[in-house]
Deep mutational scan, measured.
Amino acid sequence: QKEELKEKAKEAVKRGNKDKARELLKRAGISEEEAKKIIKKIE
Rank of each mutant, 00 (worst) to 15 (best):
K14V: 09
A28H: 02
K37Y: 05
I39Y: 01
I38L: 09
K6Y: 15
V13K: 01
E32T: 07
K18W: 10
K26A: 15
Q1V: 11
S31D: 10
N17D: 15
R27W: 05
E34G: 04
K41G: 11
K14P: 02
G29S: 02
E11L: 06
G16P: 01
R27E: 15
K20N: 07
A9E: 01
R22I: 15
E11I: 08
K6M: 15
R27S: 14
R15D: 12
Q1C: 13
S31F: 04
R22Y: 15
K37P: 00
L24K: 03
L24P: 01
I38Q: 03
E34T: 05
K26W: 03
R15K: 10
L25S: 02
K26C: 13
K20R: 09
E43H: 05
A21E: 02
I30R: 00
K37V: 10
K14I: 12
K6C: 13
I38W: 07
K18S: 09
N17C: 13
E4S: 11
E3D: 09
E11T: 06
K37T: 09
E34W: 03
R22E: 15
G29D: 03
I38Y: 06
N17W: 10
I30V: 10
K20M: 12
E32G: 07
V13H: 03
I38D: 00
K2F: 15
E11K: 05
K41V: 09
L25E: 13
I30S: 01
K10W: 05
I42W: 15
A35V: 10
L25N: 06
G29T: 00
G29V: 00
K18I: 15
D19G: 07
R22S: 10
E11F: 00
I39E: 01
Q1A: 13
K36D: 15
R22N: 15
E34Y: 04
V13E: 02
A28W: 03
K37S: 10
E3Y: 03
N17T: 03
K18R: 09
E33D: 09
I30G: 00
R15S: 13
E7K: 11
L24N: 07
Q1W: 15
E34R: 05
G16L: 02
K41F: 12
A9L: 09
K41N: 11
K2I: 15
A21N: 01
K26E: 15
E11M: 06
L5F: 08
E32S: 07
I38M: 08
K36P: 02
K8Q: 14
K2N: 11
I30K: 02
K18Q: 09
K36Q: 13
K2P: 10
N17K: 08
E4L: 12
I42N: 02
A35T: 06
I42P: 00
K26L: 14
K6P: 03
K37N: 11
K18L: 15
A28T: 03
K20V: 12
D19S: 09
E32I: 07
Q1S: 14
I30Q: 02
R22T: 13
G16W: 00
E11V: 07
E33W: 04
K6A: 09
L24S: 06
K14Q: 11
K2Y: 14
A21W: 07
E33Y: 05
L5K: 02
E3R: 09
E23D: 13
E7R: 12
E43I: 11
G29W: 00
A35W: 05
A12L: 13
L25I: 04
E23S: 04
A35P: 00
D19P: 05
E43V: 08
K14R: 14
G16R: 03
G29H: 00
K10I: 14
R22D: 14
R22G: 11
E4T: 10
K37I: 13
K10L: 10
A28C: 13
